[in-house]
Write a protein that binds this DNA or RNA. Structure first.
Length: 271
DNA sequence: AGTGCGGCCTGTCCGC
DNA sequence: TGCGGACAGGCCGCAC
């Protein structure tokens, strides 16, 4: 499922093919995503030149003179570049075709993804307005986590997955970062020490950077025509390893539910 | 205000 | 082998 590194890799994969290109047509086969795809999306896009694309958290923002298309991959969404015509498959919901006949295809089996359009400042859009700092920026650090956590009783894992605290940390990398930093995921956010938050911020940055770097090797996959997704996996130390021995202390990993999400941790190494 | 949980979806996996 | 059910998951938006 796309986490921030996959979204960043998607951005890098598609951008060279469509940057500064003009949209010829738009095909919406299935408008029922997380929210309905705007009926007038084609009206906003057709004839428009793509000025730029950038990422905010797990959102991709496509900038045009007429406004901004906001796209989220949800948990099963994919974007591909098609260099030639490829018959659409079952879950290929939206095609955006550029004037040089390159197609940007949005595929999403579970339809938790979203495609929206705003004519206003996208940073002021309700979905983006209150989002926290980018995890790889300098404004995200241990002090930020520490300061925002004062008095919070929610589990630290929920806390770092809250997009208002920091943008784009999902279940997989939250689990991994908590393991790396030695922080128990169920601990109340307000009870985590400043020292642990420094470790945690460092771990979040490191794992995201590592995953993005790994993703760089798969960029070519975004322009494949055979439908192979351009995603990748890094070696995960804790996520999905319930019952397996902790690589540090060899005690079996425990599994629990926090905020209705599967959480794996080492009861000995994470305190 | 802060916190927790319901709901949207479908592919995959498991047990019968 | 076929089928039903549980599960996974991001994240908004509601309810307490």
């Amino acid at each position: 499922m796309p986490e921030l590194p996959e979204v960043e890799t998607t951005l890098r994969g598609i951008k060279p093919h469509i940057h500064h290109q003009t949209i010829k047509s738009t095909i919406i086969r299935h408008p029922r995503l997380r929210w309905p795809v705007p009926i007038n999306l084609a009206h906003h896009l057709e004839g428009q030149r793509l000025n730029n694309i950038h990422r905010r958290g797990k959102y991709l923002l496509f900038h045009f003179d007429t406004g901004t298309m906001i796209l989220h991959l949800g948990m099963s969404g994919r974007l591909r570049i098609l260099l030639k015509e490829v018959p659409p498959q079952k879950h290929d919901h939206v095609d955006i075709i550029f004037s040089h006949n390159i197609c940007l295809r949005f595929t999403d089996p579970r339809r938790f993804g979203a495609i929206l359009f705003t004519t206003d400042d996208p940073e002021q859009h309700p979905l983006l307005k209150h989002i926290g700092p980018e995890p790889l920026s300098d404004s995200f650090n241990g002090n930020h986590l520490w300061e925002m956590a004062v008095g919070k009783k929610t589990a630290v894992k929920n806390y770092i997955m809250d997009s208002h605290i920091v943008a784009g940390v999902g279940n997989i990398y939250a689990t991994e970062a908590l393991f790396t930093a030695g922080v128990r995921p169920g601990k109340a956010a307000g009870k985590v020490s400043n020292h642990q938050y420094q470790q945690l911020a460092t771990a979040i940055k490191a794992i995201l950077r590592h995953a993005i770097q790994k993703g760089g090797t798969t960029l070519k996959d975004f322009a494949q025509s055979d439908g192979k997704p351009g995603y990748f996996s890094i070696e995960l130390q804790a996520y999905g390893r319930a019952g397996e021995p902790c690589p540090r202390c060899h005690k079996p990993f425990k599994s629990t539910q926090i905020g209705q999400r599967t959480t794996v941790y080492c009861s000995s190494c994470q305190t």
